[in-house]
Simulated scan of single mutants.
Amino acid sequence: MVRLATENLQIAYGEQIIVDDLSVTIPNKQITAIIGANGCGKSTFLKGMTRLIPRHSGKVLLDGGDIAEHKTKALARKMAILPQTQEAASGLTVAELVSYGRFPYQTGLGRLTPTDFEVINWALSVTNTDAFRDRQVDALSGGQRQRVWIAMALAQETEIIFLDEPTTYLDMAHQLEVLELLKKLNIEQERTIIMVLHDLNQAARFADYLIAMKDGKVIKAGPSEEVIEPKTLREVFRIDAEIGKDPRSGKPMCITYDLIKGED
């Protein structure tokens, strides 16, 4: 079943085309990682799929319909978005921030219902953030804050979650903590997850499907075994990579690489 796809999607900033003629299908109930060099259009593509930025032409299809025709609250019940840079109001507590995820379901005066509180508590529990629910978000570590933002996304009760570089600025342990949480949500709750990642080995290890981009176009898409291979990495990143197998996950692993010089 195809739930999310793009057809000839083009996104431009002014006269500059950033994403050009992209037609991709996102596997349902799997983790998809978008990889590519800086400035290749990864984040722009993600934002275009979520309607955070307008498209120039083409379509983004969700459940067979163009997302441009969805009302904002209706769309927010289907997909949650975690941008690369999150800003919370100063002094906001963890529980208060997570409660914002219930906005798509609020009517009238916007008061939280017993159902809302039940979902908020569940989101805090599943992300292991309940212990600091009354602390201010500003006072948390980077890894803790990222889990809180994921909890807010979960509180939206969507089946599709988008994340733009969720491991940026985190140390190795906290990166694994976040990625393992996302994998758990995918396996146990069948959430469809689409995220931009910079680390090739993390993408290969945690994603079921990879989309490799260059200059606003998809160069290769498929399982990690098909994408994390020397020819694709040469074209996408301009590196000569030595690929092995991760002894723990069995997934392909970039062992070492050299920069390819003298090629345009």
Rank of each mutant, 00 (worst) to 15 (best):
A139F: 02
I81S: 01
L22Q: 13
V119C: 02
L75E: 11
C40N: 08
K78D: 07
S141P: 06
D134T: 14
I17D: 01
T115Y: 13
Y100D: 00
T93Q: 08
Y105D: 10
Q144C: 07
A95H: 04
L92C: 10
G142Y: 08
K73C: 02
G58F: 10
T25D: 03
E96H: 01
S43F: 02
L22E: 01
Q136A: 10
L112C: 02
I120Y: 08
L82E: 06
T93E: 01
H56N: 11
I17M: 05
S90A: 14
G36S: 09
A80S: 15
S57N: 11
T85N: 13
M79E: 02
P27R: 07
L46G: 00
G39L: 07
R111H: 12
V98Y: 11
G65R: 12
K47T: 05
K71M: 03
Y105Q: 08
A88T: 14
L97Q: 06
G64F: 08
R111G: 00
A139I: 01
T32W: 02
Q106Y: 00
S99Y: 01
T85S: 12
P83G: 12
D20L: 03
N28F: 11
T72W: 00
C40K: 03
S57K: 15
H56G: 06
Y13F: 15
Q106S: 14
F103M: 09
R145C: 11
V24N: 04
E87G: 04
L140M: 09
G39K: 00
T115S: 13
T93H: 05
E118C: 04
T115C: 01
R77H: 02
Q106A: 14
E118G: 02
G142A: 10
K42F: 01
M49K: 05
G142C: 09
A95L: 03
T72M: 11
M49I: 11
L92I: 15
R51I: 04
Q84R: 10
